[in-house]
Design a protein around this nucleic acid. Sequence first.
DNA 1: GGCTTCACG
DNA 2: ACGTACGTGAAGCCC
Length: 894
Amino acid sequence: MSTKTDKKKLVLFDGSSLAFRSFYAIHNIDSFVNKNGMHTNALFAFHGMMSKILEKEQPTHALVAWDAGKTTFRTEFFGEYKGGRQSTPSEFREQMPFFNVLLDAFGVSHYELTNYEADDIIGTLAMSVDPEEYDVVIISGDKDLTQLARDNVRVDITKKGVSELQSYTPASIQEDMGITPDQIIDMKGLMGDSSDNYPGVTGIGEKTALKLLHEYGSVENLYDQIDDMKKSKRKENLINDKENAILSKKLARIETDAPVEKTIADIPYKGKNVEALMNFYKDMNFNTFMSNLLADSDQADLLTQDWADVNYTYVASVDELKADYFPTASKADGYAFYAENLSKNYHDSDIVQVAWTNGEDIFVGPADLLQADSFKDFLGNAAIAKVVFDAKRTMVMLDYVDVAFAGVVDDVLIGSYLLTARDNSNDLAEVAREFDIEDLSYDESVYGKGAKRGVPEDAAVMHDHLARKIHVMARLQAAIRPQLEANQMDDLYQEMELPLALVLAKLEILGITVDKSQLEAMQVEFQGILDGLEQDIYKEAGHEFNVNSPKQLGVILFEEMGLPVIKKTKTGYSTAQDVLEKLAGEAPIIDLILNYRQLSKLQSTYVEGLQDYIHEDGKIHSRFQQTLTSTGRLSSADPNLQNIPIRSEEGRAIRKAFVPSQDDWVIFSSDYSQIELRVLAHISGDEHMQAAFNNHEDIHTSTAMKVYGVTEDQVTPNMRRNAKAVNFGIVYGISDYGLSQNLNISRPEAKKFIDTYLENYPGVQAYMKDVVEQAKEDGYVETLFKRRRYLPDLHAKNFNVRSFAERNAMNTPIQGTAADIIKIAMVRMDQALKDAGLQANLLLQIHDELVFEAPKSEIDDLEKLVTQIMGEAAQLDVPLEVESNYGATWYEAK
DNA sequence: GGCTTCACG
DNA sequence: ACGTACGTGAAGCCC
């Protein structure tokens, strides 16, 4: 006797329908092209769907059925069957031969049968197996297949695209439509099917067809009893179209006894063939799948099998180092050096191996080699140029082992970031593939990921990998340099980003001192309040629950307490702050939850979270990522020091823990005032906006005066607040919806605001229009300093996707130019501090703000210097204004 | 690992 | 008709 758990599972795919839907699931098809110029979008979507389903269903048997061609047994008795369809687009046609290549690699059988459609193969196989022994799942994009649902046969039909499926069982069909699966064909008989081009009865759609079936059961029964039907237009139609109904039913019926030559024994699911799949990914340029596959299949050697050898010398210890292993003469394009570590956060992980070249040979060896004098001479000598992958990371790691590093002429990570401004991978192999260099494995495939990450058992695998990195770096350098030049990005690269990497390395190495006892005291205080709030919340709710669970909270608020649902998320009720604020008057629990949420965020992320990052030196060493954002901003992680609270007083108190590293020093902070709006005033050339800044007016008040048509003293705080929101909206690439959400006003009101604004600032209006048009033409937008962001989605057919790209086109030059300006200021400030002989250190950058620590004695000099350098970092048509503050802690520097 | 929420500019 | 403000990172929940 078989039990349910050891039942076998057969999954049958309607290949023709799914492949076609896959093609239409991805709209911006021109971003899916392989190196031969062939489109790959349908294959991509089909691949995603197949792997998801195979993973989910874990079939023992599987088959993809294909339509055999234009003529089938159905066209024999109805010539127009599936007639009138548009011809297959050539972009789809070219992909068709590769579906079976993919299926072979997936280990899934496929089959087609002359004169029959995919449905008939599926119907026949589904009914041929013993229901006691097999569960069957049918996957299709065609609802007609739901007629095959049985107690052991589930039919899944694609909803949107091919990723979402809707399941049909006899029970669910009964519930939704009140009929059995067999009656689906009666329904189709009455309705017809416009996509398959067969007619049905005039005037009858799904609703009426179901009503008639509830009464008569089947098409045949209906016509047997039609004489008893009372006279109506509908009866007349039914009689006139009787032949259509009978024919359509016949066409809709899926054959369950077709001469299929395959039996269940022929179609076991064999599972992935890694090698075949790898070749397929290679042909299609599916690089991410390739790395994923390698990561979980542990078969890195597959990829390397047809790679040319990279020769290298392994140096096992310092004793084996020879003098000529290091370059002595300088060379303009430098020598590649690479230090490997296995953790993203290089502040708490060690170098495991190093690799370098002397211009002729490649060498690999353990980190101890670095301590050799000859190695230190090579790395520390600024006259001997080096090319690296991630200069900042390299410098920081070397600093931890007291090795000086100088003479970086090229950082291929930064170069590739400037050129592609997307994939922010820190994996050299991924960067290399952007430039069609493919003979380097992904780090993940060599070292693994998650808990399994580590040095490979066969150390030679790692040595080869590192030697290849050196090889690849030199080739990348050769590819990147000319492209930077062609894009006129030399200055951006040489004068801004490369020197900035060194400034950031210094800042990260230095770190910022954090007073742990301050955080510990706050932790106790906050915990007391949180415990109290928790009890109060339980009391209001009537029982205990996890206040941190939005799901549980949703049930309490909207089901148990019956509060009105304001917004839903994909997965349930939204309990976000703006929703709760709208409910504030409804029940006392709301305010308690808002308080709890705020405090619990501060507690877990900052008060507790930051303590885990304090090193033995009493400092936090965050990473300022230079090659991540799509606009050119920096980002900070492990921990993020760019989002330390300031807006609420409770949160702001956390800044009391950030202190100078020495007695009699202060924290000194300088920030740009309205830098993004000033940048907008400059690049749009809008005379009103420029006048406001040139006259040192309050920009939001000035905007309010224009938009409301009032004088300065008539501007109310509310008017200023609205004007401020509009100004922000403008910078973000305004939409009436966004503004209406932000200000909690209606969309028409928001639209009116925007229209009035744009009428008053015609230069801004023209900029918004021009920048999008220009970007459509060029394919990218750029900042004042020639940083680029490519925006292929500007041509997307999908409204949302396209609108998003349009807002990016408006926002990126503004946000990006502001980012450029502060980067210039950082580089110049670093030099100026040195030149002036000041001890002050740069500690943090927070987008429009620089935070320093400095001896009290230097405060006046520092203020003069920073005001000048930040203010003159760029020459705009409006002044750049800088405001500075200082105090004993970051909290007091306000 | 995806989703939701919330901290910052 | 479409259904979102721009750019980030981290925590907790829940599958």
